[in-house]
């Protein structure tokens, strides 16, 4: 085995995985706060990335990046308040349909406003490849991994150490009890959606330089993120992050070393992994077994 190739493939797998981890974390965040599996997560991420593209035409990268995150936050929170809140008590089927409706609307809206053209999207991580022990690593890949790890740490610290983070966790675990303690549960849920949209925006802005920006860009990423979230146990944030990196590296190594897995087959492989986990380990690798309620 060629050690250099292996190291490079692992790192670029980690870079892909970082994107999956961000989106998977967004899915888990929403699942934990509102018990919704958000099929529109990928499209919301794609939309905010288009907003970032437009902002990038007017300012330099980092101001646009920060503004995009702020926009994503407001957008996500607004979605929760306007379309998710009314179906809070409705059946699973209805809620899934609502996220599907969001999926179609957001996708159509971007096509309408930005047209279906493919676009280049800049990466902030430019320059010569990083050389470690004679092996070259692309800056963008290293950058994605670092940014994702930083985001995850910040988010973890927020939930662990701040009063607001604690209140959000309480609102997700037992809304009625949290309410009696004075926690405004409705706003906490909206905040959860806001943070998820921010994570999605980061995932989108990191994906676009790799794949070109187009309105269908995040659909395959969403499948990988689903696989990652399910691998980690759909309600476990740590599981989603580890799941994301595992899927990213795993698929990359498969594509490198198994001749059968051509690039077109990566998604079907992810699909098979997803089905396999759902069937044989529905609680994921890190999740707790939840009582099955039918």
């Amino acid at each position: 085995m060629d050690g250099q190739l292996f190291a490079q493939q692992v790192v670029s797998g980690l870079a892909n995985g970082a994107v999956y981890a961000s989106l998977a974390l967004a899915l888990v965040l929403i699942y934990r706060t509102t018990h919704v599996v958000n099929f529109a997560q990928g499209e919301m991420a794609m939309f905010t990335t288009f907003v970032a593209w437009s902002l990038n035409n007017r300012m330099s990268y980092w101001p646009a990046f920060v503004l995009t995150l702020a926009f994503a936050f407001v957008f996500g929170a607004a979605i929760e308040r306007v379309v998710i809140r009314p179906v809070e008590q409705a059946s699973h089927l209805t809620v899934i349909m609502v996220t599907i409706a969001l999926f179609v609307t957001v996708n159509g809206f971007v096509l309408w406003v930005w047209t279906p053209d493919l676009r280049d999207f800049p990466t902030p991580f430019t320059g010569e490849p990083v050389v470690v022990a004679g092996v070259f690593f692309a800056r963008h890949e290293i950058g994605i991994i670092a940014l994702t790890v930083a985001t995850v740490v910040v988010l973890w610290a927020f939930f662990r150490f701040t009063k607001l983070g604690l209140a959000m966790r309480a609102a997700a675990i037992r809304p009625e009890a949290a309410r009696l303690l004075g926690v405004r549960v409705g706003w906490m849920l909206a905040l959860g959606w806001g943070f998820a949209a921010v994570l999605g925006a980061i995932a989108g802005m990191m994906t676009a330089p790799l794949r070109l920006l187009d309105p269908n860009m995040m659909q395959p990423v969403l499948i990988y993120a689903f696989a990652a979230a399910v691998l980690g146990g759909i309600a476990s944030p740590a599981g989603a992050v580890i799941g994301g990196f595992t899927i990213g590296v795993g698929i990359n190594l498969l594509a490198t070393y198994v001749d059968f897995v051509t690039p077109e087959l990566e998604l079907p492989v992810a699909f098979a992994v997803l089905i396999g986990i759902l069937l044989f380990r529905p609680a994921g690798i890190f999740g707790r077994v939840a009582a099955r309620r039918v």
């Binding site: 379309v83 349909m97 609502v98 599907i100 409706a101 969001l102 999926f103 179609v104 609307t105 957001v106 996708n107 159509g108 809206f109 971007v110 096509l111 309408w112 406003v113 047209t115 279906p116 309105p215």
Partner: peptide, 15 residues
């Protein structure tokens, strides 16, 4: 005539 308008309609009407 822009692409995407039907999708927006589908989505909003479904909502």
């Amino acid at each position: 005539t822009a692409p995407g308008v039907p999708s927006v309609l589908y989505g909003l009407l479904l909502l």
